[in-house]
Every structure is written in C-alpha cells, then in structure tokens.
Write a protein that binds this DNA or RNA. Structure first.
Lengths: 341, 341
DNA sequence: GGTTCACTCTACATCGTTGTAACCATCGGC
DNA sequence: GCCGATGGTTACAACGATGTAGAGTGAACC
C-alpha cells in the first residue's frame, strides 16, 4: 500500500536505518549514499509515517487547545495566534470546544484526545475556583486567559489592571457615571470578577462614586446579551455617560442598542470594550478597547507548554501579558446625559 | 512510565490480548475475566495508547480541515459545525489555516499532517481552476464551499442560485440599480465568479439593465475591503439603490460606510449579504442575507469523507446545500437615490 | 605495522497495540 | 464415546519508524 522506509531502503540498496538517518538529517552520511536514498525517496514518493515515529518516540508532536467556542471572535483569533505560534515551533494544534460548560471543560481534561497530544493549553470559563485541584493533571498543561490557582503554569492577561485602565480612560474623557456590562455576581476568580474589580478600583482611585445600579449582569459575553443588558439599563432610567463592556462583543451589542435608541456615541455616552477583536475596527463608531496582548499570550503559552513537554519541572510560572488602551472613536468625548425618567 | 496493556494483563493474570479484547468490547469473554481486567484497568488508571492503535490499524481517527482563516467568521462557524458533526461520528478534526494563499493551499494538500489524518475536508479559495488536477490526491478528500472540477467529492452551497435569489429579493423590494461588491475579475470558478453570475442572471431575468460601473472589485472579503469598495462607489458618483455584498463581511463593511456617509439603509439603499454569520444579527440595521446551509454542508461533508475513508469508490458526488433568503431590516425598503454628481 | 579514531553503515530490539492462528475446554448430538 | 462446533483464551507476528551497539573501512599517529 503506502511506501515505507523498507521500500526506499531496498530501492537504494541500503539498510532501513540509513534511510531513517537521511530523513532525519543525520550528519555522517556519504554524499553519494544520501543522493541515492534521496533519489529513491523521490522516485517512490515516500512520506514519513508520523504515527509510527510518534509511537517510537513517545510523543505526538501535537498540543491540545481547549477553548469555549470558535464562533466567539476572541477565541477564533486566539486560536489563530496559537496555531501560528505552534507552527513556528514545529508542533500542530488540536482544537477542542468546551462550549463554556463546566461538564465539558472537565471532560476535556480527561478525554481520549489527551492521549493524542503531548500537552494542553486550556482556557476554562466555567470551572469554579474550588475545583482548581482538578487542574492538577499528570500531563503538561498551561492555563490561558484566567487567573485561577493551582500548581499550574498560567498565561493571563492583566484583567484587573487593564480594566482599571479602561475605566480610567473613560474618567479622563469626562465620564462620571460609568456603567459596567457583563458582571457575574458571586464569581470569585473569573474574568468577569477581575474586570469588575478593576472597574471598582479605578472609580475608587479617581474618587468617582460607585452606583450599583450601573452594574449590569450578562451571563454569556455575546453581542446579544450586551444588547439586552443595554436595553435593561436604558429602561431602568438610571442616568449614565459611559459604558465599560467587559468584552468587545458586549460593548458592540450595547453600541447597537444605543444607536437604535437614538443615544449618540461618543457624544452622549462614551463606550469602551475589552479584547480588541477585529470587529472593533469596523463598528460604527469605531470601538475603543483594550488590547490584552493576544499574540504575546499565545506565544508565551506555547513556549511554556513546550518547555514542560521537554521535561522542565521548575515551579509553576505566572506570566501576565502587556496590555494597551486602544482609543478609537467611541470614547473620544463623553458627557453626562440623564436617560429617561 | 505510562501504564500499558502489559501492566494490566500482569495485574489481572491474563494475556495482553485479553485486555485488548476487554477494552474493545469483544463479546466472548467470561464475565469473571472481564471483571478482573476492568478492575485492573481502574486500579492502574490505564488509558489506551491511541498512537499505537493507530499504527496497528493504519488509521488515525482524525480528519483534516483546511480553511482560509479562523478569524473570518464564516470559517470559524464552519469549523464549529464541522467539529460538532465529526464528534457525533467519533472522529477528531485537525484544523489547518491556509491564509487563502495559493501556495499554502497547495502545501496543505501535501503537508506532513496528511500523514496524521485519514482524510481531508478542503476549502480552497485561491486555487485556480486550471489546477484542479492537483486535487487528484491519493487520499480521501471532500471539497467544501466552492465549485471546482476534478474527480473529487464536493459539498457546495448553491452559489449561483442563492445570489440570484438575493438579487431578486432586492429587485422585489424595488431596487433597480443594484451594486455588487466583491467581484474578482477574471476568475472563472470561485465563489466571486459564481455569485456574480447569479447577480447577472437575476438582473437579466427581471429585465433590469446591467451597469458595469455598479460592479466593485474587492480582493479579500473582509469588512475593511467592503468599506473601501463602498467608499469608492460613493465617490464615483454612480447612483444606486441596492447593494449585494458577496459575503456578510463585505456587506457589513459597506453598511458601516453608508451610515458614516449619511446614506440611510434601507430607506435610501437596501443591502443584502451572503453567509448569515452571527454578526448579521447584530448590525445596525440588521443585515438581510443568504443562509447557505452551513450545518447541512458540514454534516454532509463529514459523512461523504467518512464514506470514502471507509473505502467507498463510487463516482465523485456533488451535493448542493439548500439555501434560504433571510430578510432582515437592511432590505425592507429601497428607493432610487442619485448619489453625488 | 599496529593502534587509535572518526566515519559510515547495518542488525536487531523496541514503542503499545491488534489480527491471526491455534490451543484447550466444554457441550450437544448421534 | 467419538465428532464437530463453539467459547474463552493465548502466543506470536505484525504496523513503520528509531535507539543502541557494534562491524567494517580508511586515515592518522607513534
């Protein structure tokens, strides 16, 4: 059926190991031999059988990437970055979706695919902090995008600092009543909590009073829920002059409703997002946001994981990516306007 | 290191093959034996080594999915659908990005990863029709989303019919000067050509005169190029009252510019997209579009591929998914308005 | 001229599974 | 009481590569 090293070896009149040596660029081979082997390889159209090599070497050359959903732009772009980083380092990425469901996140930690990969990049959304001991797995793993405890490598964005910066940016633009969209009440460790903390921190530092009525819940961080949250807020009649969407999708959804309801952005209300997804460059108006350092996160995570796969047993590392405030149109003004009753 | 069948066999006091039989649910095993083996498996925490099985069986249980870019929403959503379909059928998907570059599309056909998968779902964008013979590969393959020739299974959307329907929809809404955004002049087989053909067909059928000045080129089908194309069109001063974006990203980019330039949609200009990506549900106004049957495409493609992997050698099949016109806000009116000079 | 050494290559075992053939029991049928 | 069938299990050889040890060669060295 398929051409094996045996076939190549016979054709070139050498041993199978010599073929292996040629394929693996072993240096001590006579040029003449190398040429003959190479010729046989080309003639027969030989391709190395990766599965056999993997079995022999005890590695697969693949790493897993478990994330909530590819149809969420942030994760699609993260996957893109991770795949590029992995490719540059000679490994392949196997993507798994967890749907942001606790059950499926746990499954991902223990699925059959773990035996197919050398390690896992894991971006949990639904796991609770008290479950961190479940993260103590016996294979190389690096956590992405969250701050959770447990003796595991983490690469995370500066959630608190960055959302603090986002909020301060709105305050500098003159906002005094800033709504926060996307809260998860009761959460103690996830992005929602951390970004909320950053928001509170900024208000406190700037001496801007906190009004709990300006904090709007949104379970899933989609455009639809952002739109819904903004409708709720407008309907409540609570006045506001700034909006901090805990991610871009929420902010874009909110932008949509503000526009539909005739509220001018940024004239009446300034809006900030978080993530800097591609879409933020094409909204009306262009969305100001936080660039959390996605590329850096992807590259660092792959590096840390490969380091573990290579056998490193140093203490768990925590890397926080550098972020940037990206000021676009949606935050370039901002003035208090009472809304409704 | 890792627990193998040997360890389990020793512990249970049986042969290694019996362990294999238990693991593979071979029916003829004494209940008592099965119990002992199962116990040993549980005690030792044994997990089957997929690589070894793959080598032995000559299959990998993985299929490749080569697509342009995950950060293009249509493809992220397609990948999502394909992964779900694959999971339901017990196989794993290995995603590869080609960046829509001819060179990398050719590479994908012949990369090392081909040896890691049992077959390939291939969504080419850049390949030229005269290169179809390159698609005659010696492994199972199913083409996605395009109409290209060659003796290969295809699952495609009804590009011509659907864009004809999209254009007719605009005509029914009263549009008589419909711009088409996203053309690729000179292309003979790709989506751009087919959707353009559908557009022309609809005009001809409805007796609406064709004006070449209304056809705007756009190489990449991103929001940015859609926005650019719309700017060009507006600057040209050629009047129009409808826009057919050859995909949603182009249409959304166009929508953005129309809004920024003060053209009311759908009052002055009606807009249609193509793809029905998630974003079309959150634009301002909501984007009318074509649902090309993504789920059906994904499921059918996986089925056809698994059929080939299973050894089927029937004639190449062509499956065309069913599409639907999704009429939302952006096309609910439409009236001729001269633009500029 | 013998020893050493570097270079080039080969034979063989091995990675962890599964397919094949064959073995020993047991069983029913005649 | 012998026969064939079936059930339950095992030994062994694959799958296609790579690591190890070691066998030849020839040149360099004393």
């Amino acid at each position: 059926m398929a051409v094996t090293m045996h076939d190549v070896a016979r054709r070139a009149g050498v041993s199978i190991k010599t073929v292996s040596n040629v394929v693996n660029a072993y240096p001590h081979i006579r040029p003449e031999t190398r040429r003959r082997v190479q010729e046989a390889i080309d003639d027969l159209g030989y391709r190395l059988n990766t599965t056999a090599r993997n079995l022999r070497q005890g590695r697969t050359g693949m790493i897993g990437l478990a994330l909530p959903e590819l149809s969420l732009p942030y994760f699609a772009e993260l996957a893109d970055s991770v795949m590029r980083a992995a490719e540059a380092r000679g490994v392949v990425v196997l993507i798994e979706q967890t749907g942001a469901q606790r059950e499926r996140e746990l499954q991902a930690l223990d699925s059959a695919q773990r035996r197919l990969t050398d390690g896992l990049l894991f971006s949990p959304l639904a796991l609770e902090p008290e479950e961190t001991e479940k993260l103590e797995v016996d294979y190389p793993m690096v956590l992405l995008g969250e701050r959770m405890f447990g003796p595991v490598d983490h690469v995370t964005m500066a959630n608190v600092e960055a959302s603090r910066a986002a909020t301060l940016h709105l305050i500098e633009r003159g906002c005094r009543r800033i709504a926060a969209i996307g809260a998860h009440p009761g959460e103690t460790m996830g992005s929602a909590r951390l970004r909320y903390d950053g928001y509170r921190k900024a208000l406190a530092e700037a001496g801007v009073p906190f009004d709990p009525r300006l904090v709007v819940e949104a379970g899933l961080w989609h455009r639809a829920t952002g739109a819904e949250a903004m409708s709720t807020l407008l309907d409540s009649g609570v006045p506001f002059d700034g909006v901090f969407g805990m991610n871009d999708a929420l902010a874009l959804g909110a932008l949509h409703v503000l526009h539909a309801r005739g509220v001018s952005v940024p004239h009446d209300v300034a809006v900030m997002g978080f993530d800097d997804v591609d879409d933020a460059r094409y909204s009306e108006p262009l969305l100001s946001t936080i660039d959390p350092g996605r590329e850096q996160i992807a590259q660092t995570a792959v590096d840390l994981l490969l380091d573990r796969i290579g056998g490193s047993t140093v203490e768990p590392r925590r890397v926080v990516a550098e972020f940037q405030v990206v000021a676009r149109e949606s935050s370039m003004l901002g003035r208090l306007v009472p809304q409704g009753g």
